[in-house]
């Protein structure tokens, strides 16, 4: 188990290093952030001054070394506009995002898994087609547009729910439903295909023959075996959730990381944008590391390198 763990951690660190390096070089190597920040009207002295202030006048490899060095000590730089450390800003805006993401994920699992199981049990029949239509529509709809339409229906026309801002539980409903659509669709599709594969296996017939109740066979024996790919997609979805959350938070004026990111873009706070990108990558790699470990616990074959 220890070797399995060490291997996964090493790979996670390498992945992270490549990801943040890519973010660094793509942003600095391909464009001129200072020019972008100051606009076309700035004179050459202003550009030079801000470049020096941000350390952007140094050669790229030197900048990169400083960047990685800071990163290793957990320093994500200082926001240009707020003047406070980026990490503090991110941690301040994070709770609202976590709340929204968690609510959306719970909703996606609670709807997606039963929908997928139901469709697998009724393969080829109405329930199956219904579930597949729901899932495919969920994957095809732009989340922010769905959010706008939900606001139009429930907030503007019916006046049942608030349209945005974090003001208690009722304001969480619309953004969470919106954000849950995509993961729900993917979880439903995957549960359905994984379940229908497992349902055809002989060990379930054997279990049934031993007199185990049908619901128990489906919900305990089959679902447990169908769970592995579903857990993977839940892990992968956290990344998508972070991305989708940006537009959804923007639509609902939700005070989370997504809104912080859009504000940073509008204010051209280059340092903060970079810090948020890196933070997002760290979260994603961590979540997937946990998923990998969960895999090892659920299925000993993976841990021992048999499968």
């Amino acid at each position: 188990m220890l070797r399995f763990l060490a291997g996964k951690v090493t790979r996670g660190v390498v992945t992270l290093l490549i990801a943040v390096s890519a973010a660094f070089f793509l942003a600095r190597g391909t464009g001129d952030p200072v020019r972008e920040m100051l606009g076309d009207l700035a004179g050459p002295e202003q550009v030079a001054q801000l470049s020096a202030q941000l350390g952007l006048d140094r050669p790229l490899p030197v900048q990169y070394a400083a960047f990685v060095g800071d990163l290793a000590t957990g320093d994500l730089g200082t926001s240009i506009r707020y003047g406070t450390p980026n990490l503090d800003l991110i941690l301040g805006w994070l709770p609202a995002s976590l709340q929204l993401a968690a609510a959306a994920m719970v909703l996606a699992v609670l709807v997606g898994i039963p929908l997928g199981v139901w469709a697998a049990l009724r393969e080829g029949r109405f329930a199956d087609r219904f579930a597949s239509t729901v899932a495919l529509t969920g994957q095809s709809i732009p989340l922010f547009w769905l959010g706008l339409m939900l606001i139009l229906l429930f907030a503007v026309t019916l006046g049942w729910l608030p349209a945005g801002q974090s003001t208690g539980f009722s304001s969480l409903i619309l953004p969470a439903v919106t954000l849950s659509t995509l993961p729900m669709a993917q979880i439903a599709r995957l549960t359905r295909s994984s379940m229908s594969e497992v349902l055809g296996e002989a060990f379930l017939d054997a279990t049934r023959a031993r007199g185990v109740a049908r619901w128990r066979v489906v919900l305990v024996h089959a679902l447990r075996n169908a769970a592995l790919p579903v857990i993977t997609i839940i892990g992968l979805q956290t990344g998508t959730l972070l991305s989708g959350a940006i537009t959804v938070e923007f639509v609902f004026a939700w005070p989370g990381l997504g809104t912080l990111a859009t504000q940073a873009v509008q204010m051209r706070d280059f340092s903060l944008i970079q810090a948020i990108v890196i933070f997002g990558a760290v979260v994603f790699v961590l979540v997937n590391l946990i998923v990998d470990l969960l895999y090892g616990i659920l299925d000993p074959r993976i841990r021992d390198g048999v499968a």
């Binding site: 793509l26 942003a27 873009v265």
Partner: peptide, 21 residues
């Protein structure tokens, strides 16, 4: 490939477009 999948897409896009315009 793994690193690419680890970068939330819209955030990556924001980083690139903030640098390039």
């Amino acid at each position: 490939v793994e690193a690419q999948l680890a970068l939330p897409f819209i955030l990556l896009a924001i980083a690139v477009i903030a640098g390039r315009g």
